[in-house]
């Protein structure tokens, strides 16, 4: 069936912004190579303007996505897993080439990434019960605390784990109703750009996830300083860049999730971090083991707690014993 002489059809990798697939407005591309330096594709090299366009798209999508029912968001996230399952071969190929992994290790990473969507799909309608609840105030009031999404979150995806790491930082952000502007791994952006094609066919509304490729610092700087971005995940930044971005983020008091190099490791997760796994070596270079059970901290990092009071009134002093 396969024709050894047939010339393959290359894919033009494009950004994913507002549900569409634009090229960079700057017209720039950069060469993406595999781990041995062989050319794979030209990826768009996003500019400051692309970053701003993505923020506008993410803001526009926030009202609808955060207002959707948790059940609905859960089904949409599960749909992403379904779509990925059918395109597994493509992602295994891209991850293997991008990260220099054997086919079996790449397949393990892709499987784990698909399972991660499933994990977070199940969280959408449970996090509210875990992170919120009724508070027994000393007075005649009903008092309820509810977690709500922070808003537009800039996400610097991990540099090494181009797909499992990527999914591990995107899914928890959008599961709770945030919208995301994602900066893909600079050297290995292809799995991220392909993920955009999956999201576009998974009922994820346009603008909920926006994916940019290019030089991390160039794209991240305007996002960290942007007044309409509410939070930033610095996972993909090295220590020096993370510090610089955290300073810029203070200008409108963005919520900052620091990269693992500076963030304290939760003590209850420290033990499991050493467990061996197919992508261990890769995870370690990101100083985060993406194959480990993710816990809830990436969900809660981008949640606000709203507490609502209302008087209960009183029906009478005596009450009822039955």
């Amino acid at each position: 069936m396969s024709d050894q002489n047939r010339l393959g059809v290359f894919k033009t990798y494009k950004l994913y912004v507002g549900g569409k697939f634009p090229r960079s407005e700057s017209g720039r591309v950069y060469e993406v190579t595999d781990s041995k330096g062989q050319w794979l594709a030209n990826a768009p090299q996003s500019s400051r303007k692309d970053a701003r366009d993505a923020v506008v798209a993410a803001r526009k999508a926030f009202g609808g996505w955060s207002g959707a029912t948790a059940y609905n968001r859960g089904q949409v996230l599960y749909r992403v897993a379904e779509m990925l399952e059918g395109r597994k071969e493509q992602f295994v190929r891209e991850v293997a080439a991008s990260e220099g992994l054997s086919k079996s290790k790449a397949a393990a990473a892709v499987d784990a990434a698909i399972d991660r969507w499933v994990w977070y799909a199940g969280w959408t309608d449970k996090i509210g019960q875990i992170a919120g609840g009724a508070n027994p105030v000393a007075g005649p009031y009903l008092n309820l605390s509810t977690p709500e999404p922070t808003g537009v979150v800039a996400v610097l995806a991990p540099q090494k784990s181009s797909f499992l790491g990527l999914v591990s930082v995107i899914a928890p952000v959008i599961a709770t109703g945030n919208t995301a502007v994602v900066v893909a791994s600079a050297d290995a952006p292809l799995p991220a750009l392909s993920l955009g094609e999956v999201l576009a066919t998974s009922d994820v509304p346009g603008g909920v996830v926006n994916i940019l490729s290019g030089a991390t610092a160039e794209i991240a700087a305007p996002l960290a300083a942007h007044q309409d971005v509410n939070a930033i995940d610095l996972t993909g930044a090295d220590a020096a860049l993370a510090k610089e971005l955290e300073i810029a983020a203070a200008d409108n008091l963005k919520r900052v999730l620091r990269p693992p190099v500076t963030r304290r490791r939760p003590s209850n997760e420290a033990q499991s971090a050493t467990a061996s796994s197919p992508v261990d070596a890769d995870g370690a270079s990101d100083s985060e083991d993406w194959s480990a059970s993710p816990g809830t901290h990436r969900l809660t990092a981008f949640l606000e707690t709203k507490t609502v009071w209302h008087p209960t009134g009183a029906l009478g002093a005596a009450g009822s014993s039955y």
Partner: peptide
Amino acid sequence: KLRAGVVWANTFNKFDPTSPFGGYKESGF
């Protein structure tokens, strides 16, 4: 729809140690 950490309905400025208090946006985190 209100983007605020504490919403008082038919009351105001009530506080309690069991009730989480804090802001959205530039009111802090």
